[in-house]
């Protein structure tokens, strides 16, 4: 998986560069006097670094790669500052082999970010983001000691605290396209409870839980998005 991430990361600049050439208008003339109001829709990748030992059964490394999409709308403007609430969904999974058992961890993180922006230039703004929300995870273990797959899923509180900058690289009369790198720290509560076999309600057998600690998906993260504003 690391090779794939590496290749993808290296491929992104090339793709973006190719798109940038015909689209970027002549350089902007001056800093703007007031922050613009716009809708923003973004998509990209989120690289999470999970140091929690409970993550080890599900991944050969500490990396959790997620896709991310978000939408926001400028709500308040004061001089070069603006405030934009929004909605964001990060989703990803990781699979591994843990002591011979096949494991999978599927993660969905839904947050409601509030983004404070400072517009340095009409093509650049820096931002800080507070994003409370919730995280849903499903852990799956398939071990030869039991024919059935053991599963556990549920919601926990989660949130992000991050900062970054958006750099416009395509400026059209309609939508404008920005490259948005971001770094931050993700918080998430640990999910409690073990994994139970995935059997039907009519299965008469009783099972004990597989006591793997719930993963606490907290840690530093990078996010790289392409944002369209209009």
């Amino acid at each position: 998986m690391n090779k794939w991430i590496f290749a993808l990361s290296l491929a992104l600049p090339a793709t973006a560069s190719a798109a940038e050439t015909p689209a970027v208008p002549p350089a902007a003339s001056a800093t703007q006097s007031e922050a613009p109001r716009f809708w923003a829709i973004d998509a990209g990748l989120r690289y999470g670094f999970i140091r929690d030992a409970a993550f080890d059964p599900y991944s050969d490394s500490d990396l959790l790669l997620q896709g991310t999409v978000g939408v926001s709308r400028t709500a308040l403007v004061a001089d070069r500052f603006s405030l934009a609430p929004g909605l964001r969904w990060d989703s990803g999974s990781t699979r591994a082999t843990a002591r011979g058992a096949d494991t999978l961890l599927l993660v969905h993180r839904v947050t409601m970010p509030v983004e404070g922006r400072f517009h340095l230039h009409r093509r650049i703004y820096a931002f800080g983001r507070v994003a409370p929300g919730a995280l849903w995870q499903r852990a799956t273990v398939q071990d030869a000691s039991l024919p059935e797959t053991s599963k556990s899923s549920g919601w926990v509180f989660a949130g992000d605290l991050s900062a970054g900058a958006s750099l416009m690289f395509i400026d059209t009369r309609g939508p404008k396209f920005w490259f948005t790198p971001e770094i931050g720290y993700a918080f998430a509560a640990r999910r409690s409870g073990g994994l139970s076999p995935d059997v039907g309600d009519d299965d008469p057998r009783q099972f004990g839980t597989l006591q793997l600690s719930g993963t606490k998906l907290s840690g530093w993260f990078f996010r790289a998005n392409v944002t369209a504003t209009f």
């Binding site: 690289y47 490259f179 790198p181």
Partner: peptide
Amino acid sequence: TLCAMSCATIAVGCGDR
């Protein structure tokens, strides 16, 4: 920026279990 993120990913994210 993307190169820096890639390097950081490899450096930090590839910690072995």
